[in-house]
Design a protein around this nucleic acid. Structure first.
Lengths: 226, 226
DNA sequence: GTCTATAGAATGATAGAC
DNA sequence: GTCTATCATTCTATAGAC
């Protein structure tokens, strides 16, 4: 109990600092100062800096994916059958978006840490990330149930694009707000989830429709009605 | 001439290494070794590591945006009037995608460097990036001409999502290939440009249509036909 | 388990000879 | 302009007292 206090303080401090400044700008000394513990405590509890990062990443990754899968399961239970397409996407992108842009300050650091971890090239995290894709397979399966006629590739591109929009929205929120002169409301988390979900769903639906009327893959976007 | 040789060798080496390994993993000593020049040459020619990074980023940024705007202008000239929606998006996302995933090895480092620079949190680059958004305003204007009835916010979200999909596709290419078991063809650059373009165009068109029939913003995606 | 003190390696930057 | 040599920091990691 009392022994875990230092451990947890280090993890929380590291998460906060990495989330705020990125991995390249944070040293062990920054972390122990923020945690108000001794420098040697890091190596005592974790062995090395990389092992601290790895443990932090794995634990947060598990928590985030549990949240996503809980939301996915709720959508399946609510409908009785396979979850609707937009609910699947919302379960994937909602947790990080709510965590980062919403008012919940407690989860904020964890969510922003995870997004940074996906964006920056830290060797120890890269190794874990390329291996741990089980949760994405679950979502791929859910999409396939919701849209059985979709080509395999479309399913994966949909997941990929959903995560892409989510990550860039979080990392580039300030820039988008500035570019749009405030026209884009980054505080309206539900609206953002809806935008991302709609974009993915419409694209999947459009390709599924096009596939029925053409033998070649859709390569050129249709012009919108003027 | 001959004096620029060392300068250019340093810039090229730095670009290659940053593109390959990310900013956190490259030191000045790595750069001078790759460039086969002396360590002191960096400070002589650039003053400091940060000034080297800044000059590299600015010069590549100018080149990339010139390429984008040339493509945009070509689309406008070809059509005689405002460029078509999908041509505007293709002009924005085509250059980085072709540079990173295509066969052109020469531009590869430059394009991957730029994508890394947008993903990682390097203070000196962040400062430049949040200021330099002029090229995005040009693209926002082009989108507005192509789709005059679209809400202001939708225009910016479209640009934002287009860049999001582009960057994540480049940075996460390996992971997507692995996840999809090869179903997603990362070598088919034209196909990827078409996918991203289609996603953005369909979303903009769908929202423009919905805006005509509803007074409240679209918040919930339509279910695809089963 | 927690601390002080420090080892040992690497970093960015510079002085001064050529 | 280019080199060698080196400074001053900073980093991660550890040894050993408490």
């Amino acid at each position: 109990m009392s022994t875990d206090q230092t451990r947890l303080a280090i993890l929380a401090a590291a998460e906060r600092l990495y989330a705020d400044r990125g991995f390249g700008e944070v040293t062990l000394r920054d972390i122990v100062a923020e945690a108000e513990v001794n420098l040697a405590a890091v190596n005592y509890h974790f062995g090395s800096k990389d092992e601290l990062i790895a443990e932090l990443y794995v634990s947060r990754s598990v928590a985030l994916n549990r949240e996503r899968l809980t939301e996915l399961k709720a959508a399946e239970d609510a409908g009785g059958g396979p979850a609707a397409l937009d609910d699947v996407i919302a379960a994937l992108v909602g947790p990080p978006l709510r965590g980062c842009l919403g008012p919940d300050r407690q989860r904020s650091a964890a969510a922003r840490f995870m997004v940074r971890a996906s964006a920056e090239s830290v060797p120890v995290i890269r190794r874990i990330r390329t291996r741990e894709i089980g949760h994405l397979r679950r979502f791929a399966a859910a999409l396939r149930r919701a849209l059985p006629q979709a080509p395999e590739a479309d399913i994966y591109w949909a997941l990929h694009f959903a995560l892409a929009m989510t990550h860039e929205t979080i990392n580039g929120a300030e820039r988008l707000q500035r570019l749009s002169g405030g026209a884009c409301d980054l505080d309206d988390v539900a609206g953002i989830v809806a935008r991302i979900t709609a974009a993915v769903v419409q694209t999947l639906a459009a390709r599924a429709t096009a596939a029925k009327t053409a033998t070649v893959p859709v390569r050129r976007a249709a012009r919108p009605r003027a």
